[in-house]
Design a protein around this nucleic acid. Sequence first.
DNA 1: ACAAATTTGTTGATGATGTCAAGGAATGAA
DNA 2: TTCATTCCTTGACATCATCAACAAATTTGT
Lengths: 381, 381
Amino acid sequence: MSSVLSDAHLTEGMRSVFVELLVHGPLSRAEAARRLDLSPSAVTKLTKPLLENGYLLHQPLGDRSTMGRPSQPLAVDPARAALIGVKLTEDALFAVRTDLRAEIQHELRRPLISHAVDDVVTRIGEAVRDLTGSGQPPAALGISLAGTASGGDPVVLTSPFLGWRNVPLGDLVAAATGLPAVVENDVRALTAAQQWFGAGVGRSSFALVTVGAGLGCGLVIGDRLVSGAGRGTGLVGHLPIHDNGPLCEMGHRGCARAYASSAAIRRAVASTLDRPGLTFEACLALAGEGQPVARRIFEEAGRALGQVVATVANITGVQLVILSGEAVAMYDVCAEAFDAALTAHTHWTSTPVEVVVKPFTFSEWARGAAVIALQHRILGR
Amino acid sequence: MSSVLSDAHLTEGMRSVFVELLVHGPLSRAEAARRLDLSPSAVTKLTKPLLENGYLLHQPLGDRSTMGRPSQPLAVDPARAALIGVKLTEDALFAVRTDLRAEIQHELRRPLISHAVDDVVTRIGEAVRDLTGSGQPPAALGISLAGTASGGDPVVLTSPFLGWRNVPLGDLVAAATGLPAVVENDVRALTAAQQWFGAGVGRSSFALVTVGAGLGCGLVIGDRLVSGAGRGTGLVGHLPIHDNGPLCEMGHRGCARAYASSAAIRRAVASTLDRPGLTFEACLALAGEGQPVARRIFEEAGRALGQVVATVANITGVQLVILSGEAVAMYDVCAEAFDAALTAHTHWTSTPVEVVVKPFTFSEWARGAAVIALQHRILGR
DNA sequence: ACAAATTTGTTGATGATGTCAAGGAATGAA
DNA sequence: TTCATTCCTTGACATCATCAACAAATTTGT
């Protein structure tokens, strides 16, 4: 049983069945056939080699309420392969090891002292080794970071905060680790994770809006992750909100980022209260306690965020928007302002936007990278 | 030679070759094979029945500069079938008859006195008869109008300005004319026309922004026309531009529509100059002559439009935006303001947006409807 | 208890569709 | 004239999904 998801000569049909079972949980052959618009016999034939190779397992029978022969649910064996996901930030490296359903098994965090390409590649290699240990070698590796990483299987990336331009990070890491490696923008990676294993399951189109150090937006339209070639997608951070709002780092007045990024919120609360040492979490706590300055600033942030979400939904037509990111906890203290702004700016001819708030931990970024690796490995792009 | 594009039992492969030749002009078999990632032999086999049925024609040989046996270009015979496109407005019906490449052959305009469904269906039937005459019967019919018409092959539509809700217009017209009929939102129809026969050819993603009575936006992402199910797409009309701008019809302050719609511009110029009878065209002429009020108002419109285009490009990541619509001529008098706003609001990490301004005549709306009919007929959705 | 109905899953024959290998056709270059 | 090159075609072959038939496992009804 050699390298995973590659030797078994996965045909197109087998891939589609595998993905359907991976994403939509255990399904009987008959149900899979209906969903994929295939004949039952085709599913039988396609699943046979997958079962033999251990990719699929028979599940214990579930409900027995229906008539006729009970169905035999099939499911992907999540332990059949492992994936590595790495998220790079300016000063740290987060890595996770996940199973095939992107459930995190191990994680680690390492400081990133040097931004030299070789050093980063070495650090990633060490992290992979430490996460792998004596276990089965991972099937693939994904790397995510902020910046305009190219979409798909990209070999070349440009990252402002690392000071990189046209670095073939994927190839370098692949050479250093011996694993197939891909690089992707972090927000898109997170979007991919939601598409296959999160709130986006079963939705052919949705948007993910992240709030944290900045604002981000990922799109899935027509079952495909949108990746603007050359241009980034989801650049919502500098959407103008008010003419006379606060300034952002780029000198824009009243843009979304100047209202809703965690940095902007922290700055605003800290400077108004003249407590320069305040962290974002402390600001959040203050707002939770009803401190008026903090409350007001979070309220304005919620309003800005609501307008961002409404604008994204109006332009793209998505019905579902997932809220996530390091600072998504702010939703709790600004829900009313958010909802009011969302409703006010949603086009009146449209059905209301569904908003799902995803609790967030930092390892989600790395998990997204693992999903990118998985998708690339299975779909071949 | 019976009904077109249906009897010949078009297989999937034949469809793809046909569309490739239809959209990308004359191509040799070898070139088509390369583009479609097929073997040359496959193209030979797929084109044979299409040639026999008259869908394809051999073109006279073009350049003979290369080595080897000269290629034999194939092209779709545009006269092999005709299409009807109908655009409905509040007070008129525009209809065109086109060939397979959506070139307009005949067009007509009829007043729409009654909004009763039966009357409209009858009017459409008359228009089709008049356009068909004694010529070959059209292969399909498309209808476009403003409002949230469902996407694709829709049978049911909701139109605010006609006062319709859930009218199965496609089925009714199909029954009345005997032709396969589909309904689509007008902006999406125009977008489809640009995708196959306009500035969008060869682009897998682009946006179309229309300016006229309102603002509209159509999207093609990943080679597919985006149609928000339930929610409309491209609802850019009420994008906030300034906090203290003019009011739109919905009571929004300073939204894009209040700046850049032809109605808003006309109102602003006419009321400021106290010349209530001014038409939009007259306003445009005034601005062209340098009349300061008109110039300023068009300048602000251009600024708003530039911001709309930038926002669409930032969120969707499209690299190309096509400008069109009845009032697109305004671009000439506000190009600097438009470009400045576009650059200012374009995310700085991105490559610049390409903007293509399409001169517009009203029959383009109906032509778009014809393209929708064509796409639906060929692709089956 | 037993038969009928119902749904699932399997198997082999069939048909559709594309590739491959081979070769013919039409040209430019040596 | 001969060769290299590119285009196009043909028939053998492989792949893959459907279809029809049937076996399997259960509920329902008598």
